[in-house]
Nucleic acid binder design. Structure first.
Lengths: 241, 241
DNA sequence: TTTTTTATTGAAATTGAATTCAAAACCAAT
DNA sequence: ATTGGTTTTGAATTCAATTTCAATAAAAAA
């Protein structure tokens, strides 16, 4: 019997020979792109390795040449997606001398667009986040980082408030989550009472941004910026006890 | 061979003999309660029929005497949970002559409590909703119904705004979703930058309610109602361009 | 061209659960 | 205590997918 002294205690480990590949790269890419398609169509939980290889038009065994399991493929593919869909450095450049509203709007539009154009992938994002603590953490850190610019500004923005750092974060975190539910139910679940009236991406963005702005500043954004939400200007306490 | 003419086209159908049971009820209940425990601990996706029977201390085959599959058990158990955790009729009675803030606070506290006390079940709720369109619809209809009181009031509340019915719903829907993200990341995922400072249920509720209130009325709730969020009173636009 | 390496195939083995079912235990009524 | 129903058991089966692997094809190196 072989002196199998180094019986690794961890998982079998894919031998991942350093060899990248010449056009094996193409097959790998083909699998990743097939995975995107399958994810968009059936979501993460119903997705099977066979779906991916079939979609890619290769034999099922080939999968294991390039990936150790379904999850690692999906993680890779969705990390790519997040990176490409949420490039906020560009946003920051665009709105470099815009006001608060423009900046928020630009950020939010990125997210709304992602939901509107890739609802299946956004759903898969949530599914994977639920399964993989690692991936969930990545998304959250991403989210928190995006909030960073605002969180850091809070003390200067509202000096009299004297919010603690943590409290400022809580406020911003809660406000930033405002969109999530309606985006999910509008674009992913297509709840009928919501989609009964069609909204453009910019209208949805405006709604979410205006609500965020109101919660943060306790006033409406400049009137000339508004289209879909002009009516909300009259939405304020008057006779409220 | 038997004249099997009525070969049902649908699933095999559990024969569900009308027979309820004397103390078979107890076993059924034992399975349901075991399911709750397992759901809270491992969540819906990793849950196995064997986990439930083991937790209940019965043989695996017994499961099929009472349920046709895991999902239907879980649906039953979670519907019970939702019904028991979110009894808003009671709330309405409690705050019958309170103001808007009290009413909102009471509603929100119900939700925050559920997250704080049963994070695993709240997670399972989301997991099941993602898998079962039927259950998801049920939750959404529940949500929309809870919003009903407010949505219906919107035209009287802000008569000058002249919001369309749909727009009013969108606004309320978005505002009501405000808590979701932070509740999920605080209680379920226990994101460290959030939980680094411990919040009481009432504090969390206050935060969410105040933000909701600000977004809706564009002003702070009566100062005497506030504890955790008094600092937010100074959070309003001053020097914002 | 020959050799070596790498990519690809798909049938067969494996896995991990769900599901069935004949037999045993338990009851309650006669 | 015998009978007939219901409950419970757990070993055996089925099932759907993953995973392996020996054989083949294709590409690169020699």
């Amino acid at each position: 019997m072989a002196t199998n002294t180094v019986k690794s205690s961890a998982k079998p480990r894919v031998v991942r020979t350093k060899a990248p590949s010449p056009k094996g790269q193409k097959s790998r890419a083909k699998l990743k792109s097939a995975a995107l398609t399958v994810l968009e169509e059936v979501g993460y939980h119903k997705m099977r390795i066979g779906d991916v290889t079939a979609e890619a038009g290769v034999a099922s065994g080939l999968f294991y040449h390039y990936f150790s399991d379904l999850r690692s493929l999906v993680v890779e593919v969705l990390e790519d997606f997040v990176a490409s869909a949420l490039r906020l450095e560009e946003i920051e450049r665009e709105v470099i001398n815009g006001g608060w509203y423009e900046r928020m709007f630009a950020h939010n539009r990125l997210v709304v667009r992602a939901y509107a154009e890739r609802p299946g992938l956004m759903r898969a994002l949530l599914q994977l986040a639920d399964e993989s603590e690692e991936f969930a953490g990545l998304l959250r850190r991403n989210f928190i980082q995006q909030l960073g610019w605002l969180t850091r500004y809070m003390p200067r923005l509202f000096p009299e408030a004297g919010l603690s750092e943590h409290q400022a974060l809580m406020v911003v975190y809660a406000l930033a989550g405002t969109g999530e539910t309606i985006l999910r139910d509008y674009y992913i679940n297509r709840e009928e009472v919501l989609v009964s009236h069609l909204l453009e991406v910019d209208e949805m963005t405006e709604l979410i941004t205006v609500l965020f702005y109101r919660g943060l500043f306790l006033q409406m954004p400049p009137a000339e910026k508004l289209c879909y939400t002009t009516a909300l200007q009259a939405m304020r306490a008057e006779s409220v006890r």
